[in-house]
Design a protein around this nucleic acid. Structure first.
Length: 424
RNA sequence: GGAAAGGUGGCCGAGUGGUUUAAGGCGACGGUCUUGAAAACCGUUGUGGGUCUAUGGCUCACCGUGAGUUCGAAUCUCACCCUUUCCGCCA
């Protein structure tokens, strides 16, 4: 959420940000008008409440019954006025909140301005996109051939875009999760095991609601929503708390499954395990002071890159443009790994600095010094990494001419073998 | 799922309709005293909104959450949430 004070004093800054994001600016004038209304009505109700407070106190001390009854009658009228005014106030505040909650974050100055994803900037590529020296097979052929992936039975159980992993396929994913968490723990992130279902309020605070309601799964009877990313519970971990400066920065990592109601175009990304309604992810998350968030972002990007490097994958770093960054983000790096089988760069990580946008919604603050005024913290999130696409890259990059897959060295202890061969 | 007891500031804890402007204590911070420290004593010590003559003043709200009763609610009523203990069930 943006600071109402910022919207009030620098509306043109907000308007520019919305234009750069290719978002409508029509709500802005409504917000400004409602803000004025809110303060006018609030003042009226406060004056009346003040009167009632003093007079009620006097009534308590009055001895003369006639005088007392007169004052009570008078205050009954004041009470009715307050009730009427505050109905108005609530209506205005509800409208104002609804509009303000729907405004996205203001992009950082370094975020390239552009109306389409073509304005994303590839900053650098690590390694060469390489072919194995024979026609590389896509993972949707390699996986079933090795008995690692079963698309048919996934569909039987749950419908399109679900699959089952077996044997070393399932084990490779488990190995990656364990190894990634180990790496991040050594990088200084505290491992957390989180609820996979959260209440509605938690999604509002993380910025997923109200805007992305259509992409979320939830229980019809109870207030349980499936997490679309670990970022959601992690953002709220310190919700409503006032942290001390010494506690910061806080670094967390967590494995969770992610559930997303993807509204996909028919025929797009249909093959393989690239995009599903359920996938696994290891996430990094930071709470820090405004002074350090820029540096923390670069460090988090490097921490995500370390995973790609450790796995020996070719990857490139993209700086996303204003129309492509997420609702919560001020600046975002995407990391994409090369997959020679499907001949595609696959997004395996998105590393963002959200500034105080999420902290404001989740109400996470800190006190810079003892006695100083509290401020909002900055929050950052980054995948480290998304599992299915990492699996794709490993399978397709490490395939051999005989159809077997070499296990990246760092995973061999977890997988229990050097090479994944067809089951006999 | 059933029963009972609870939820008050950073923490403990008093408070059953109006001197409560949330007592008292602990902790923290500042000061006095001291060569220094401790002790003692004095003072300060929440969050958010609004407003103004703006490092401060004034004001409104906040005692689990939300409604209600009342001139007036931490206090009374209702619903819900959570915690603890016991019973049942279960991995």
């Amino acid at each position: 959420m943006l600071d109402i004070n910022l919207i009030r004093t620098q509306p043109e800054l907000v308007r520019l940000a919305l234009n750069n994001r290719c978002e409508s600016t029509t709500s802005l004038d409504g917000i400004l008008a409602l803000d004025v209304q809110r303060r006018e009505i609030l003042k009226q109700s406060e004056v009346l409440r003040g009167t009632r407070n003093t007079v009620s106190k006097e009534i308590g001390k009055m001895k003369d019954p006639a005088q007392r009854d007169a004052k009570i009658a008078e205050m009954r009228g004041v009470g009715d006025q307050i009730t009427a005014i505050e109905v108005d106030l609530k209506r205005v505040e509800d409208q104002l909140d609804a509009l303000t909650m729907a405004l996205p974050n203001i992009p950082d100055e370094r975020t390239p301005v552009g109306p389409t994803e073509d304005f994303n900037v590839v900053l650098r590529t690590e390694g060469e996109p390489r072919d194995p020296g024979f026609p590389a097979k896509p993972h949707w052929e390699l996986g079933p051939a090795l008995g690692l992936i079963d698309f048919e039975r996934g569909v039987k159980l749950s419908g399109t875009r679900f699959y089952v992993l077996y044997d070393l396929g399932a084990r490779l994913q488990r190995a990656l999760i364990a190894w990634m968490l180990d790496v991040h723990t050594q990088q200084g992130y505290r491992e957390a095991y989180l609820p996979f279902m959260v209440k509605q309020q938690t999604l509002f605070a993380a910025g997923q609601l109200p805007k992305f309601k259509d992409n979320l799964y939830h229980d019809a009877e109870e207030d349980f929503w499936m997490v679309p990313t670990a970022e959601v519970p992690l953002t709220n971990l310190h919700g409503g708390e006032i942290l001390t400066a010494e506690q910061l920065p806080l670094h967390y990592c967590a494995y969770t499954p992610c559930f997303r109601r993807e509204k996909m175009k028919a025929g797009s990304d249909v093959r393989g395990i690239k995009r599903g309604h359920q996938f696994d992810k290891v996430e990094m998350y930071k709470f820090c002071t405004p002074e350090t968030s820029d540096a923390e972002l670069e460090q988090m990007r490097e921490d995500a890159e370390a995973i790609c490097k450790g796995l020996g994958l070719t990857y490139r770093i993209k700086l996303l443009c204003t129309s492509d960054i997420g609702f919560n983000a001020r600046i975002t790096y995407d990391i994409e790994v090369w997959a020679p089988g499907c001949q595609e760069w696959l997004e395996v990580s998105s590393v963002s600095n959200c500034g105080d946008f999420q902290a404001r919604r989740a109400n996470v603050k800190y006190r810079p010094q003892a006695g100083a005024k509290v401020e909002f913290v900055h929050t950052l999130n980054g995948s480290g990494l998304a599992l299915p696409r990492t699996m794709i890259a490993i399978m397709e990059n490490y395939q051999q001419a005989d159809g077997s897959i070499v296990v990246p060295e760092v995973l061999r202890g977890f997988v229990g073998t050097d090479v994944i061969r067809p089951r006999v």
